[in-house]
Amino acid sequence: MRVRIDGVSVVIDDTTILGGVDLVAEASAITGVIGPNGSGKSTLLRCVYRALKPTTGAVHIGQDDVWRSSARQAGLRTAVVAQDHDLDNDYSVHEIVTMGRNPHKGVLDRETTADRAIVDRALERVRMDWAAHRVFATLSGGERQRVLVARALTQETPVLLLDEPTNHLDIGAQLELLDLVRELGLTTIAALHDLNHATAYCDRLLLLHAGRAVAEGTPAEVLDADRVAAVFGVRSAVVPHPLTGRPHFVTASITGSAEEEVPSDPTSTGRR
């Protein structure tokens, strides 16, 4: 299911957090939202999953306007792996994942055998079934993220939203999580920090800077060295990955001294 963001802006206390962003996330594709800290990545996602009402603009999922339908409807269309998960409680992994069934249940409904089967399958899918009866807060960071993806799966939504899903994960766990997301094949919008993850896993990228869309397109179109220098303030170059041969981003500080420079490197173009 396609997600269309039209001219979304968010103004809080006279500060413009997002200034008129447009984006179309195609069905079954992974769309990456990249940009420096504070560029508005999370805010944009929050407008899509109905946590924050845009000051102007609209978000459509399929044909439906997110902000003209109910909160529960949103829970049936978008599943979120957010950044704000509280750990000061003793929910078991099973209880956390079962919450994904909430939008499907009436206020007095109990979980059925079918619900429990969905929860079990989701936990198996992320290889966390062994931890069903562990306390969520006692798991490692990577395990917790996988459990949250399992909860998103139990929501059985066409759209998956990920807000910096690889934060605080070791490198192995980061790649494992992103591989899993790609396997799922859902319409995915992910706010990402690592430019190489963005190039390797995303079909399309949206580059945000200070609340505005700077570029939108395929990773190769969006991440050119001059633009990266302007937005992130780093020098960069694209080299072939020694193991996979795919384009790989290497970066260096913009204030780096001259003797670090490889004089004959033709790809280093980002220096101002």
């Binding site: 929050r46 999953y49 909160a71 409807q73 949103a74 979120v80 956390i96 909430n102 929501q155």
Partner: peptide
């Protein structure tokens, strides 16, 4: 009880 954004994502 696990988070505002998470709750919104779960349809609350």
């Amino acid at each position: 009880s696990v988070g505002d954004d998470t709750a919104a994502g779960l349809g609350v």
